[in-house]
Amino acid sequence: MRGSKTGLETRIRREKAPYLLDIDGDVCHHVHSAAKAFCKPFKNFIEQLYIDLFNDFKWSADLRELFQEICLICNVKYTMPQRYVSHRWLSVDDVTLDALRLLDCLTLFYFPWISGSLSERAKFLPVTAEIIHRLNVSESSRNRLHEIRMFLVSTCFNSTDS
């Protein structure tokens, strides 16, 4: 990481921040420490979200298959959400970029799990409708998304209030 020609510190200085001062040897550790201090007030909210996303799909083949189908319908390349690793540098950045790529599909997938009354869940329906419209999902695919949603609602809440 500290190579004089292609190390991370050298590349950061050359390509992004030539004004960085080298105070005690390793700018990368300073950046990592600053980012960690910045994130501390958020009490690991984002990190825990990424851990939960990874675990949802790692431990359930059924959920993973449904998510793959949603990705296929939305014409988004399926990849399992990445694993956040707390001791790996820039792991949150890597996982965030992947999650942003999958965000529309994740939104459609998790929409049925919104807790509360039917009227409470209905507040979020326009978000899913906008995604489906923006991605130009066909009528038959919309019907399949509805079937997936009904299945997830029935298995998650064991109710018929969808």
Rank of each mutant, 00 (worst) to 15 (best):
Q82M: 07
N136W: 00
N55T: 05
V27L: 08
L72D: 14
C156L: 06
C39W: 00
R134S: 15
K43W: 06
A35K: 14
T128G: 02
D62L: 01
L100E: 08
T6S: 15
S115W: 06
G25L: 01
I131N: 09
L100H: 14
D94G: 09
H32Y: 08
M150D: 13
P18A: 00
L135M: 09
L97F: 15
S119N: 14
Y19L: 00
S33C: 04
C39L: 07
G25I: 03
S117K: 07
V76H: 10
N44F: 06
L53A: 07
A34E: 13
A37S: 12
Q82K: 15
L97W: 09
F157M: 10
L97A: 09
V27P: 04
P112E: 04
E9I: 01
P126T: 05
L118R: 12
L21R: 14
M80F: 03
D24N: 13
F42V: 00
S162R: 01
W89D: 14
H32V: 03
I73D: 07
D94E: 15
D93A: 10
Y110G: 13
H87I: 03
N143R: 02
R101H: 12
T79V: 03
F151G: 11
I46R: 11
C74F: 04
N44K: 04
R149E: 05
R149T: 07
C105W: 02
E15W: 04
F67Q: 12
N75Y: 00
V85Q: 08
P81Q: 01
I132D: 13
T128C: 01
C28A: 05
L102G: 15
S86R: 04
A61H: 10
S4K: 08
T155Q: 13
D161G: 09
L63F: 06
D52N: 14
L145E: 04
D62Q: 08
L135R: 15
I132H: 15
F67H: 14
S154M: 05
I51T: 12
R134D: 15
K40M: 03
F157C: 07
F45P: 07
K16E: 05
L102R: 11
F38P: 12
S162L: 02
E15K: 02
R149M: 05
R149N: 07
F124S: 15
A99W: 00
L108N: 12
T155K: 14
A122F: 00
Y50D: 10
S162A: 05
K77P: 11
K5A: 11
C28I: 01
A99I: 03
